[in-house]
Simulated assay, not measured.
Amino acid sequence: MLDWDKLRIFHTAAESGSFTHAAEKLNMSQSAVSRQISALEEDLGLKLFIRHARGLVLTEVGEQLFRTAHRMHWELQQVETQMSESQEVPTGPLLVTTTVGIGSTWLSSRIHEFLILYPEIQIEIKLNDAELDLAMREADVAIRLHRPNQSEMIQRKLFTVHNHFYASEQYLQEFGEPQAVEDLDKHRVISFGEPVPSYLGDINYLERLGRPDSSPRRASMKVNAIYGMMQAARAGIGIAMLPDYVTEGETNLRRVLEGIELPAYEAYFVYPPALKNSKRVGVFRDFLVGKAREWSF
């Protein structure tokens, strides 16, 4: 049977990428960490790391063991948190993942209120347009712009994301305001750069609107972040199609061509069944649902 203490040290070393950083996290000496890893490799009769001057690289067997150790580490954390959550006050860490656009605008402007309400919950937010795997414990909960692909995940709809065309007053004074779709051919267009995440499949609708599929409108600028597109529009570079969550409270942009129906998509709060009884997940879910109702229009 594997020694859990050695496995814990291995897990920290694999996450840290070096014995030195692992030793700092574990409050051990570097030599003690190295000895424990060597002892674990001897117990298994297998090499877990390739050691070189720049740090540690997991072997194939090491990667397999790390995934198992990571799952065990996460489950142990959940048990510890559930024990602490037997109290009335929700407490413990909560790792939230969402897109860069949602996280840096809609969520970040509301999270302070949640932390005032629940000061015993420690929030960590990972902004990533590539989705983290909740089943593999890469995060506890997620805010996503589509229904979860994994049917076992628990989901709660938050709001519908509406898109609109925006341009700055500076741009409109210089180039005029488009009055019809045909006018867009005379204007500068800001688009999302490649690769476009699947949940934002229609974000470059401005390139195709009113044009044949074989001849899309050419963008004057592409940027692979929704927030970056908004900043480009604010700077007067061109017209951009932007979701409402990123333009909330924005006073430097004006909607144009408002009568056109544009793509929309749904935002969901998602978490695994293992956390369905977690108090900290429950209060965070209810907080977001309440904020979504206040905001939706």
Rank of each mutant, 00 (worst) to 15 (best):
V246R: 04
P197N: 03
A13W: 03
G176L: 04
E75Q: 13
R71N: 09
P178R: 06
I9N: 01
D185V: 15
S16N: 04
E131Q: 15
I123H: 07
E88C: 07
Y268A: 05
Q82C: 13
V61H: 09
P263L: 08
E88H: 11
F10K: 00
L44M: 11
D244Q: 15
M72W: 01
V223L: 11
V161G: 08
R54T: 03
E85P: 11
R147M: 01
K157Q: 12
A14C: 00
A232L: 14
T20F: 14
G236C: 08
Q150N: 15
D133R: 04
Q231V: 00
R54F: 09
K222V: 15
L2N: 06
V189F: 02
L2T: 06
Q64W: 09
S198P: 06
A39F: 03
S31Q: 15
Y268K: 07
L172V: 07
Q36K: 15
E294R: 09
N252G: 11
T12C: 10
T160Y: 03
A39Y: 01
G201T: 12
S38R: 10
R137H: 10
D183T: 07
S31E: 14
G193L: 05
P178D: 03
H146M: 03
E194N: 15
S18I: 10
A130K: 11
F287H: 02
T59A: 00
Y227S: 13
Y227F: 12
K126Q: 14
Q170P: 06
V79E: 15
L134K: 04
R188W: 13
F159T: 02
L288D: 07
M221I: 11
N27C: 05
E207V: 02
R156T: 10
Y271A: 05
R35I: 13
A232W: 10
A23N: 01
A274H: 09
E131I: 05
A139M: 04
N128T: 13
M136F: 02
A39P: 03
R218A: 14
V270G: 07
T105L: 01
A69N: 00
L127C: 07
S109Q: 12
M83Q: 14
S220H: 14
Q36D: 10
L257E: 13
E261R: 11
M83G: 10
Q150T: 02
V89P: 00
W74L: 08
G62F: 07
R144M: 12
L242W: 05
R67I: 02
F287Q: 03
A22C: 00
A23S: 10
E131M: 09
S168D: 08
A14W: 06
L48I: 05
P263W: 09
D133I: 02
